[in-house]
Design a protein around this nucleic acid. Structure first.
Lengths: 266, 266
DNA sequence: TGCAGTCTCCTTACGCCATAAAGTAATGTT
DNA sequence: AACATTACTTTATGGCGTAAGGAGACTGCA
């Protein structure tokens, strides 16, 4: 369930995202009417809490309202709609990402830190992976995070034209890798069936239903038995271990590719 | 809206996916009861038609039923539920992908073809990008496509351990890159606002709401003006052009990284 | 002090969604 | 001819986002 950005009045959305009047926790001067018991920030935080705990699929206006002891409709006082709420939640959590990376150990080490931070961040708030990238949210923290990545990449001294694409390459890869883990956890949580239980059940049936499997897909069968990730921690499920190794090895591959581009440009 | 796989009886799901009794179009021997006017294949094709035309968000049991002149509930005769229907749709379209790649020009050229085919395929059926990868569908065509990719990758003579990860690296990257285009089209179609209209509207507001933008994000602003993709075809929207260039350049970067791994292994 | 205007928050309602349950009618087998 | 089985329908349940309208709280002005 990719969730799309709020499509209402751009002026209203952007004013909320970049809301500066004192920032979080300040209440602007009041006019007539009852004093608001909530605030945009409180609503956004409640949304984040719901999404963190129950996932994006469980994020409903009713659920957020309930967490605040209010009805769903009460939220519309603070936020134009669900799309905009998600935008605000997204930009809010993005504040957790570093605004700067240490470049003294070189760009490669810095990029590794960036990828590692992004990985950890995405697992802390897995629902961010379901926010569509097509129409970016354009909030301050998204820009802040992008600026941090760019600062690292400028150290490669690659041309702007290449640099632009490297940004995409890195984010696509990291996003895809961490998404595997996030979705796997989501599936386990929402079905109550762990990967460890799910996989043997399916592959057992597979053997029944496709007895000629080994002849049809020899390379696949060969690969399945070889090259699995070593078991370093039994508490980490199989699929997550595999995904983590793919992340580490794959990141190395991508960084090697960037290095090749750097060498070629020199 | 990531859509998760059907979570019902694995035996039933797998039997449907690998259904062999005559394959498409054969009707099994009949018992008592009215003769079925539809079939699993017809339902799956209708689902694909709906998803291709209107997107995953518009894929409802009602919509598919309506296309077949039936109620939503009628579909449950053929398919256990929506999740399983999506699984079947997914594996069905995957049959469009080649089962083999020409390796005479080397693995690099073959991988480029693979990436290109995956790109085109994903834009033909953008909704496949919203099928969760966490609990794979495990249908015959998914395995067929994977086997084709593996055949190419075996030509690199990398160790199985590395090869496993390279599969993930490539798929993550291609998926991420094409997803940008798919979501951008989806956003344009569902809101009626093209990227060309959307972006200036937003960035205009951005300038109002964040007058200190250029000081806060100097690298970002710098990059925005430099290194844009050259305009080769005016009919292709800006964001798609950018995404396509990212795909091409990024693929080169990843392939360079694989080449580095190959060289190191030698 | 009183009242008008404004604002928060509620209830109700609409039209979607997946799917459970139960009913109707058609068909093959005995 | 009776019965079991099946395709398909109608109806209902409990979710969703949010439009519309109303109740009561509060400020600012007369």
């Amino acid at each position: 369930m990719v969730v799309f950005a709020g499509q209402g009045d751009p002026r209203r959305s952007m004013a909320l995202l970049w809301r500066t009047e004192g920032g979080r926790g300040t209440d602007a001067k009041r006019g007539p009417g009852p004093r608001p018991a909530l605030s945009v920030d409180v609503v956004v935080d409640a949304g984040i809490a719901v999404a963190d705990a129950e996932g994006m699929a469980a994020l409903s206006m009713r659920a957020v309202g309930e967490r605040l002891g209010r009805t769903a409709m009460a939220l519309y006082t603070y936020v134009p709609g669900k799309g905009e709420l998600v935008d605000l939640m997204y930009d809010q959590v993005l504040a957790e990402l570093p605004a700067d990376y240490d470049l003294t150990a070189g760009w490669r080490a810095a990029l590794t830190s960036w990828a590692e931070d992004t990985w950890a961040f995405s697992l802390r708030h897995p629902w961010v992976l379901q926010v569509s990238q097509a129409r970016p949210v354009l909030g301050p923290n998204e820009y802040r995070a992008m600026e941090a990545l760019l600062r690292v990449l400028y150290a490669t001294e690659l041309s702007p034209a290449v640099l632009r694409r490297v940004v995409g390459t890195l984010t696509h890869f990291v996003r895809g890798a961490v998404q595997t883990v996030a979705e796997s956890r989501l599936a386990a949580a929402s079905t109550g069936v762990s990967d460890e239980e799910w996989w043997p059940a399916r592959s057992g049936v597979l053997a029944e239903v496709a007895p000629d499997f080994a002849e049809r897909f020899p390379l696949l069968v060969g690969l399945e038995t070889e090259g699995a990730a070593p078991v370093t921690d039994d508490a980490v499920p199989y699929l997550e271990r595999e995904a983590r190794t793919t992340f580490e090895v794959g990141l190395g591959v991508v960084l090697d590719g960037i290095e090749a581009a750097v060498a070629r440009a020199r």
